[in-house]
Design a protein around this nucleic acid. Structure first.
Length: 530
RNA sequence: GCGCCCAUGGCCCAAUGGAUAGGGCAUCUGGCUUCGGACCAGAGGGUUGCAGGUUCGAGUCCUGCUGGGCGCGCCA
């Protein structure tokens, strides 16, 4: 389907270039038809062109159709509908040959070879406590974006940036210290903005047990081990953990600041050192070194991004929470000032998880809902699927009191059920490996409905890849499952005569491959029974 | 005060300025002596927050209003 899609896109692009050179082409030209009666692919370029040149859309569509017919003689059915849509119907032989290829190559059929070296940084929550369910979304979305990139042939490094330096860390360590005193029965007083969560007491107990020499260098790794464990329980594993403290200790921050200084992009004023970020599109200049001679968080971030670039990645992706929205301009400014191309860095804002409770989630106040509670309650797979059900930019409603319903009503099980049903049919049929013949015995319209649907996976993956939105894969898998369940209800498989039976078993196997492929990319294990 | 985002059936969400505004949950009605009923088929439910405007065409774009969320540190 992918090769067909590309061919069809090129043909249409050529026609537009020669017939309507003034028309600016915006991709994608074709989209998967929203309804079966609209064929395999639809386009509304005729409408766009017509509005630009003030002609009748239907006439433009007719003209384009004639040109398309000449370029694509193998496609016998091209339709035009009401306002000016052009719809393509692929002949069955095309679908059958794609079907054969799919069965031969299996998941590989949908893979591609982009061969970029990508760094994706996500979660990066301060090590000041266990991860919350809000971080869970960042973790799963980042992980699945990484999977999508990997499946498309890129080399991907998953990185967690550890903010192990600064005021929040000091506050937490101080809070632990006071809790230690409390447990030991001494006088204690929590700092004004100290951390109030119960976990602080757990750490304090651990401190008493292990009696570390230095509190800070004990507490942070301890919390990081929690974070790592919670992420693994969710099925997310990082390749590298970059420490902010190490960037400072290794002189990388100093180096980055000096670099900007030498380029005369800094200025001393009011006792502080400022980066002239307004020269690169920022709203105001930013402090690099504070009056008290300490580096700001921003200055280590400049160094961090410099260090990212130096590691020879051709694409950097950052996943941030919406609270960092105002931070984008200054980091992009820094990237430009450091002499790198701005487009290399892509920043995705993943919205927070909205909680249906009166109280606001705060880790410091100890009111955040821990990620491990959710995973314990519903399991990693259901949590992952649920997290991916909205676009990155959409708020995700999350009612923790309904966590059990999340697992029971999770559409994941609709998809898993389709996979398990297919496995069950194979078990009943008593076949282990399917022969790749008999695909030519697919004749029934119901069969082709399902076949068309499963072949769309490559287009769906392209869309998810281009937009970095895993939600399209979720929607697609729900769609495939629905299509399969319907087919299963309408047509028998095992009690048909031999040729049809084998053809349908092949169709089921292809459907199973598609479902498994999609689920694997989502980091979810397909179930053979449930 | 400045800036950003959101408002779509009872609830949660879809819909690159384009095809009859779609789907899930909930409600109601049907469907297993037959490959798994965690399924399928069907029904009801909408003036897309309000008022204008732009055009062949507006849920989508512009202006104003109402109601909600968030960001605006030499915090991290």
């Amino acid at each position: 389907m992918r090769d067909l899609y590309q061919k069809v896109s090129c043909s249409l692009g050529d026609i537009l270039n020669t017939e309507y050179p003034d028309f600016e082409i915006s991709l994608p030209l074709w989209e998967i038809s929203s309804k079966e009666e609209f064929g395999d692919f639809s386009t509304m370029v005729a409408l766009k062109v017509a509005s630009k040149i003030k002609e009748d859309p239907l006439e433009v569509a007719a003209k384009i159709k004639e040109k398309l017919k000449k370029k694509l003689p193998e496609i016998d059915n091209i339709g035009i509908l009401k306002p000016g849509f052009i719809n393509l119907f692929f002949p069955k032989e095309h679908l059958i040959s794609s079907f054969n290829k799919l069965l031969r190559e299996r998941e590989e059929y949908f893979a591609s070879k982009k061969e970029k070296n990508v760094l994706i940084e996500f979660v990066s929550a301060n090590p000041t406590g266990p991860l919350s369910i809000a971080h869970g979304r960042q973790a799963v979305v980042g992980d699945v974006i990484a999977n999508i990139l990997e499946f498309s042939g890129n080399k991907v490094t998953r990185e967690y940036y550890v903010n192990d330096e600064g005021r929040q860390i000091d506050l937490l360590v101080e809070s632990v210290g006071e809790r230690v005193k409390e447990i030991e029965g001494k006088n204690f007083s929590l700092p004004p903005d100290g951390y109030l969560g119960e976990y602080v007491k757990i750490i304090a107990q651990e401190v008493i047990k292990q009696k570390p020499k230095d509190l800070k260098s004990f507490v942070i790794p301890f919390i990081l081990s929690w974070i790592d464990r919670d992420l693994r329980d969710l099925g997310v594993k990082f390749d590298t953990w970059e420490s902010q403290k190490e960037l400072i200790d290794n002189g990388k921050v100093e180096e980055a600041v000096d670099f900007l200084k030498k380029k005369r992009l800094t200025e001393e004023k009011e006792g502080a050192l400022w980066f002239l970020s307004t020269r690169f599109g920022d709203d105001k200049d930013r402090v690099l070194i504070k009056k008290d001679e300490n580096y700001t968080y921003f200055s280590s971030d400049v160094a961090y991004h410099k260090y990212k670039m130096e590691r020879k990645f051709n694409k950097l992706i950052n996943l941030w929470g919406p609270d960092h929205h105002g931070y984008i301009k200054r980091v992009k400014a820094a990237v430009k000032a450091l002499g790198f191309k701005e487009e290399v860095l892509e920043i995705i804002i993943v919205q927070l998880v909205a909680i249906k409770t009166k109280q606001r989630m705060s880790r410091r106040k100890g009111t955040a809902i821990p990620l491990y509670d959710l995973v314990k309650e519903v399991g990693a797979d259901a949590a992952r699927f649920y997290y991916l059900m909205r676009k990155n930019s959409s708020h995700l409603e999350f009612d923790i009191d309904k966590a059990k319903e999340i697992s029971f009503e999770n559409p994941l099980y609709y998809v898993q059920y389709a996979h398990a049903r297919i496995c069950s049919v194979f078990k009943k049929a008593g076949v282990n490996n399917i022969q790749l013949t008999h695909t030519k015995f697919l004749k029934d319209e119901k069969e082709f409905l399902l076949l068309r649907k499963i072949l769309q996976l490559s287009c769906c993956l392209d869309k998810a890849y281009n937009t970095l939105e895993p939600v399209f894969l979720i929607e697609y898998l729900k769609n495939v499952a629905a299509c399969f369940h319907k087919f299963y209800e309408e047509r028998r498989i095992l009690d048909e005569e031999a040729n049809v039976r084998l053809a349908r078993l092949n169709l089921l196997e292809a459907t199973r491959i598609v479902l498994a492929c999609g689920l694997n990319i989502l980091g979810i294990k397909p179930m053979e029974k449930m």
